[in-house]
Write a protein that binds this DNA or RNA. Structure first.
Lengths: 76, 76
DNA sequence: GTAATATTGCTGGTTTGGCGGTAATTTATT
DNA sequence: AATAAATTACCGCCAAACCAGCAATATTAC
């Protein structure tokens, strides 16, 4: 998974949602620059920025590995 | 998905791999502080930091949404 | 027990992501 | 065509992620 790939996925979902970059950034409560940079795969970015956007676009993040089935969350 | 959850997953996989925080940070070519903070869910962190760690621990990141099956990568 | 290793914590400095503002360019609408 | 909206781009500034180094504690090994 590369940064550019993530940006491409976000772009696709935003378009499908019929949102402009500004609208998405407002909904996600982040700056417009973050959406722009992210979609362009331009720079590194923070996890929270990605999570906020994914939350708005109804995208879930999954971690996959042979060990995940043995991982049980203690609380919360 | 919360930051603390991600840290918990990383911690679990690192232990299973039999790596110390320092060993993991060296392999991932990041500072030990990043691994420490991440596992503690202490701070926000960068995507690249997470990707580097996941790469070493053989964890894959998956994006899930109803639209993902319609998303096709143009190139690369 | 002691010694070695690992983890946690703190500190100061560097790097960089994110921000709003502005402006140019592209696209859509009328 | 002209106008409006959206996208792309660049600019300082600030906050925070990241770093190495060191120290203290916790854990493990001998």
């Amino acid at each position: 998974m590369k940064l550019a790939t993530i940006g491409s996925i976000i772009l696709f979902h935003r378009k499908q949602a019929g949102l402009s970059q500004k609208e998405l950034s407002d909904l996600a409560e982040i700056g417009k620059t973050a959406v722009f940079d992210l979609e362009k795969g331009k720079s590194n970015f923070r996890i929270e920025t990605l999570l906020k956007i994914c939350s708005i676009l109804n995208i879930k993040l999954e971690f996959q590995s042979p060990l995940m089935e043995y991982w049980r969350k203690n609380e919360s």
